[in-house]
Every structure is written in structure tokens, then in C-alpha cells.
Amino acid sequence: MFLVKPERRRLLQVGATVAVIALGLASRAFPQFVPAALGKYPGDALWAMMIFFALGIIATRMRTWQLALTALLICFAVEFGQLIQAPWLVALRAHPLGHLALGSAFGWVDLIAYTAGVAVAAIIDKLALFKRR
């Protein structure tokens, strides 16, 4: 008898990705609804959650901890990439979409926000998005 490896529900992953994108954009467009003490960090955490859920669309059979680690590595790579200030990269980051995807300035606290966002996404994934057989 073969063990069937559980997989993520792709449609739920798409829904989670879209919902998190909407929340992230709203957190930046309407900062008055985010506690001032949290600053921009809820948006950073939501960005990391979006990376996790978007990866889950593709990697439906990856274990939650592997997906979380991959998402964190991507988030950290993008953040450390902000230390590179090549002219073409600075120009790309100046565009609104480039800024949303790549950020602009390195910040150590962003790494904490990404970790928190991925942790929340992993909990949601484990509880609701991962199909058990």
C-alpha cells in the first residue's frame, strides 16, 4: 500500500494570496487603520505571508516547514538585496511595483516582520489550507 502525500488546496492558496495582497495594499493605502506603533511592519509581515501562500500554489506537496523556510529565504534574500545599490536596481525600486516587490532600504527589523508573517501563514496553512487524507 502506498502512502499518499497530502497536498495543499490550490484554490485556497490562491484565495489566501489574493486576500493577503489586498490587506497589504490596504495597510499601505490606509495607514490610519494600522496602529501607529506598528509602523510599516504589518505590511512587511503581510508581504512575507503573500510569498508563503504564492509558493503554496506551486509547491502543493511541500511540507509546511519546508515552505516556510523557502519563503523566509526568499524574503531575507530580497531584504539583503536592498544593500545592493546598482543604478539599474535603484531605478527599478523607484517604480511603484518595483518598490512593492523589492523594497528600497535594508532594515533589520524587517527580518523580524517577515519571520512573524511566515509563522502566521504556516499556522494558517497547517490548520486550514493543507488537505489531510
Rank of each mutant, 00 (worst) to 15 (best):
A59M: 15
L38G: 02
A26L: 14
M50C: 11
A94I: 08
M62L: 15
C75Q: 08
L38D: 06
S27D: 01
R61K: 15
A71K: 05
M49Q: 12
A71Y: 05
W47P: 07
L72T: 08
V90W: 05
Q85P: 09
V34I: 15
W47R: 03
M62P: 09
L72F: 14
C75Y: 04
P42K: 00
M62I: 14
I51W: 09
A37H: 04
L73F: 10
A77Q: 02
L73G: 11
R28W: 09
Q85R: 14
A54L: 10
A45I: 03
Q32I: 11
I74D: 00
I51Y: 04
W47I: 01
E79M: 00
Y41R: 05
A36G: 10
P96R: 00
A91S: 15
Y41L: 10
A86F: 11
L89K: 04
W65S: 10
F30I: 12
Q32D: 12
A37R: 07
L97H: 02
A48L: 06
Q82A: 06
F53A: 04
F52D: 05
M62Q: 15
H95P: 03
A36L: 12
Q66N: 12
G56E: 02
E79W: 01
W88A: 15
L97I: 11
L92E: 07
P96S: 02
A86Q: 13
W88F: 15
F30M: 14
L67I: 00
W47F: 11
F53S: 02
V90P: 03
Q66R: 14
L55M: 13
W47D: 03
A71C: 08
H95I: 12
V34E: 05
L38W: 09
R63A: 14
G81C: 06
L73T: 12
A54R: 01
F76P: 09
L55H: 01
I74M: 10
L72W: 10
L55T: 06
T64E: 15
L55K: 01
F80K: 08
A94W: 04
L67G: 02
G98A: 05
P35H: 05
M62R: 15
M49V: 04
P31Q: 04
D44T: 12
P42R: 02
A54C: 08
G98C: 09
